Computed example of a mutant assay.
Amino acid sequence: MGNEYQIYKNLILREIDFNYILPLCCMDFLEQIRNLKDQFRTGSKFTLPDEFKNVVISGMGGSGIAGRIFQELYHGKPTVVNEGYEIPEWVDASTLFIAISYSGNTEETISATTMAHSAGANIVKISSGGKLSKLPGLQVTVPGGVQPRSALGYLLSPLLNSFGMLSPVRDRVYRLIGSIDEDSSFLKSIASEIASNQLIPLILALPGFTSTGIRWKTQFNENAKLMAFSLNFPELDHNDIMAFEKSYMRERFFPIVIGDTTNEQINKRVRITSKLTGLRFSAVRPRGESLLEKVLYTIHCGDYLSYYTSLLRKLDPEDVGIIEKLKSELAT
């Protein structure tokens, strides 16, 4: 891709003893991260309707990201991700409506599912229980006990299994994700650069990795308690490039390209964007054969990167106290 990149591959910027700064709560969360490969071994699935014309996936936060990832990978029928209390007016009996809420108590998802039922949609619900599991529709119950963002495999696997997308690559996915569990030293290096220099992650996703970029962003938000931004090529060259060149405090951003592409015009755009703006782009390149493998590998890299950044900031990656306070006040 050119000399504009600093590609992190077995590169250690500085030696840090992460075990020294690892409190017990963080060790528990690390086990949740390491559990991802086993989650994709689950055979959970649901039976597709005989006929449907479109797919709507309703979900929020760490549950909803499963829908975004699926939407980017699946091209069989028009698919929309629904984030909110309402549903599109065109939802009807020809819609496969998939509601995802790990807790089963997400109020936006419950509201949308209730409306979808009234519209006559074919409803599938994926949750560990909660109020959602009691609503009309086909229920897929997944194991509970972890943070929703740590249950990505449980929530995404039923979608991939039901549409026949996971079985051909399941073993390779397990090995790829496991390879990061065995050696994530290059991600510690990136975390060190971000935390030590108090930088803001600026995630630049290549085509096919837009949902992965969003996952990285939200993992930085929740795990590392950092603002982060996710942009994607080629769209960013039509607007954000101006800010890359002239924004104040631009030196505080850490631009990092994720994904890969065989589209040489996209690769050319990345090189020229870096050159014209004077920003040096770092990069994390995926491993794997299929796009699904590459996406899941890159997602797991982001999980570790945000986790290590939280440790360096001396923060509990599992803490979502303010989100829970918000939910509590909304319920009163």
Rank of each mutant, 00 (worst) to 15 (best):
G84R: 06
N232M: 10
S133I: 08
A121C: 08
M1R: 11
N221V: 01
L36S: 06
I256E: 00
L152Q: 03
S157N: 04
S306L: 05
F46K: 04
Y102H: 12
D38L: 14
L176C: 08
V142F: 07
N10Q: 14
T277G: 02
S282K: 15
R285P: 01
L73V: 02
I258Q: 02
A99K: 04
S118N: 14
G164L: 06
L96Y: 05
S310D: 08
L138K: 15
L30Q: 07
F40D: 02
F18T: 00
G84C: 03
V284T: 08
I87S: 08
L276H: 11
F253M: 01
L326N: 11
L160D: 00
L24M: 13
I299P: 00
M1V: 05
N105K: 10
G153L: 04
Q71S: 07
S101A: 10
D92H: 09
R175N: 15
D38C: 07
G120V: 12
Y85P: 09
R285D: 01
Y307E: 01
I12H: 09
L315F: 04
I69G: 00
I126R: 07
K217M: 12
S211L: 05
S185G: 00
R285T: 12
R14M: 11
V320A: 03
K246C: 06
I57M: 05
F281K: 07
T79I: 10
I322E: 11
S184Y: 14
G153A: 03
E89W: 11
I57C: 00
G302Y: 06
I323P: 00
A151P: 07
S128K: 05
D171E: 15
R250W: 10
K294Q: 12
S328V: 13
P148A: 06
E329Y: 14
L226N: 05
K275S: 11
Y248D: 12
A243K: 08
N232I: 04
L312P: 03
G76P: 05
V56H: 01
F18I: 00
I190Y: 02
V257C: 00
G130A: 05
V124E: 09
F254M: 01
L11N: 07
L199K: 15
T42F: 12
I7E: 10
P148G: 05
H117P: 00
G130Q: 02
G43N: 14
P234E: 13
L132F: 05
F281R: 09
S111C: 13
T309H: 08
L311R: 05
N223T: 03
F233L: 06
G59Y: 02
E83D: 04
I100D: 07
L326R: 10
F52T: 08
E235Y: 09
Y102T: 06
V81F: 08
L132T: 01
T114W: 02
E318H: 10
L73P: 01
Q219E: 15
E4Q: 12
N267A: 09
Y304R: 07
I16R: 13
G59L: 02
I100P: 09
K131T: 15
P201D: 06
D50A: 09
P143C: 10
G120R: 10
